[in-house]
Design a protein around this nucleic acid. Sequence first.
RNA 1: GCGGGCGUGGCGGAAUUGGUAGACGCGCUAGAUUUAGGAUCUAGUGGGGAGACCCGUGAAGGUUCAAGUCCUUUCGCCCGUACCA
Length: 802
Amino acid sequence: MENPLLEIDKKWQKYWDENKVYQTSNDYTKKKFFGLIEFPYPSGNGLHVGHPRSYTAMDVITRKKRLEGYNVLFPMGWDAFGLPTENYAIKNNIHPKKVTKTNVARFKEQLQMLGFGFDWSREVNTTDQDYFKWTQWIFLQMFEKGLAYKTEMPVNWCLGCRVVLANEEVVNGVCERCSSEVIQKTQSQWMLKITEYADRLISDLDTVDYLPRIKAQQKNWIGKSHGAEIDFKVLDTDTVLNIFTTRPDTIYGATYMVIAPEHALVQEHKEKITNFEEVNDYIQKANRKSALERAEDKEKSGVLLKGLPAINPLTGKEIPIFISDYVLITYGTGAIMAVPAHDQRDYDFAKKFDLPIIEVIEGGDISKEAFTDTNKGILVNSEIINGFSVKEAINKIFEHLEKENIGKKKVQFKLRDWIFSRQRYWGEPIPIVFNEEEGYVAIPEDQLPLVLPDVESFAPKENGDSALAAAVDWVNTTSPKTGAPAKREIDTMPQWAGSCWYYLRYMDPNNKDALASKEALDYWLPIDWYNGGMEHTTLHLLYSRFWHKFLFDIGVVPCSEPYAKRTSHGMILGADGTKMSKSRGNVISPDEIVLKYGADVFRTYEMEMGAFEEAIPWSMDMLNGTSKFIQRVGRLVDKYDAKAADNKNLETIIHKTIKKVGDDIEKLKFNTAVSALRVFVNELSTLESISKNDFEVLLILFSPFAPHLCEELWHQIGNDSTIILADWPIYDETKMVEDTVKLPIQVNGKLRDVLEVKNGISEEEAFELALASEKVQKYANEENIVKKIFVKGKMVSLVVKK
RNA sequence: GCGGGCGUGGCGGAAUUGGUAGACGCGCUAGAUUUAGGAUCUAGUGGGGAGACCCGUGAAGGUUCAAGUCCUUUCGCCCGUACCA
């Protein structure tokens, strides 16, 4: 026999669809709630059970908001440009547009089986020209404001496939697909100046409600640090080696210097370096290592630049310069002064190369390790700053550096500008043309969207150009300014681009004249709640905040932060406790569950399976337990009696449950919310009959989790309209109070008895009852008590002499 | 290396933020019942002990009448990563 829940799913999904129950109103006078989840990348594998965890959570939240009378916007769309689709298209020679269409249809079907309250009339797709027209438009605004520029950047280059690889496509230094060697090659790339927004991206975090660990990750990724840039003369040359340090106070302890293998100094003074061959060899080796490999190498390596020492500007002494890959060309100036006594990395390096270690701050034991505590310690061996604390010494040194004109204060960020080009076909074309005379020229806005040309093959070219290069008629064009011959940009945008502003398009998805109308933006912004994966809380969040701030600066959006609140969920692992993946064969697809158990079981299980923010393995046994629970709720209707009076004995638990479920949903504690509902259902199961009011409270509270069953029962007990139009029940604190409470009695911190006492018992009464207890009397009496503690409503604690 | 997080029964997890550790489930045990169903109902279920009790939140110390929660030290695991000067 078929599971009756499956019929119920179909029946109500059809009803909701036909009656447009979840369609968002455009009445901008209503109180609003915009709940956002990360739109998925429609891969060929279909949805897996991890995706709906976030969707169900936000569906629960927005259903509660609807019941509370909000005008809810809960939309869905497709982040559909991207590598896997392109790779599939290349392999099978199908247009990526077609692949995308198929994948989207599959994803949508799977999502619709789950009964989410999405307003499908607002669906967006980043690959639609009506959508990416505005992605291109935003890029042009950035270009006009000087935030987009072109520069040479190193990229991963596969010698076999002859394509640029993403970091994730490089495994153990070789290409993931063909196992050929991967080298670093420079390539001209479009960049976005996100660094110009670094300070605001940090300081505006104070104005938003993100989980603390999300804020921490944003801050640490941007990585603001205060320090100094100092010039070191290179002996017998006109060159100065400019370094960045956060510890200018330790300069007297700088016994050598290190520059990154890519640093220009090496090539500049090739002739002077007597061991250039050895140096060059090291550079080649470093070149072959990926950034991650460099980071993982614990053993320090490097080569001395023989014949090219520098001068410590404070001590006047000659100090050697090394190249080593523990210094990164991408941070600071790509060069450091090494102070082995007070930096552990420098210490390790100095030990290995047997370099002098000079203590300049007293307080540690530098025979064992570097002393890096900046809060204590006094400067020594440092002529002009001897005797000062670290803090004082830093200020003194700044004065000196500026007076002598050899250095200055500097604020440094870890954050780098964003490489915005991809040498790929399946992305938004960058709307720029180039010729020698005019340089880079923007395509006029009225010519947007610039659509992808048709090509024979979607694969990148031998020289690394994208497949767009083959569309000769498309590439060869004229300058919109002068009409002179020009070539179109053949790079496309990264997948991040479309997802930087998608939330704005949901507000007004069909607007032809703007990315969204001013009225819609004013009404819906900021997003009230954005939930997504922890893996997107650095880059995607940062990039979209950056674009939003830019749009704010040019007057497009009314606020400087897009997301008022951001939370994140944990991963769902396979039953074996490891990450779900095709290769491990532990992937579970939601359809197989839904078609067997019904959507409500799936949804409720995902909400109660564990703590929402933690990773958790899938368990079929637990799922079966949820299934039994849902069936039990369904059977409860047999006890329903329209004529029964409300049960006075249920009052306390009803009000407690209303509070608990409501509070827990707001705190993302779905597991304990369902647990409270189970307690309530356990209680109802013991009754002979259940009144209309009592039953309706249960249905409304449970409906965000199990909307199909609750809708069905709601109608079975005589309601005509959808349950979503009901009101979320209000609890009454005064009705939550129990008549009696349990009062634990401790003696010397050990529990000795638990008394049932009337609620609100006084201190005197409590002590009296405690001492009257036989169990307590074994340990405590009036004579040996030295201290009595009473925590109102909580406990009694007695301290006795030993 | 750096950044973020996590360690509580056989398992998933609770614990009003310093106040009865193990809510609610899964699993298991025993019994009842049946239209043999991934059924239902009843009772039990952290460890030790007949018991009074004792021991228990990764480990070791500490603060406190009272510690899963606060403070030191330490071990292990997961995720991210750009050796961040």
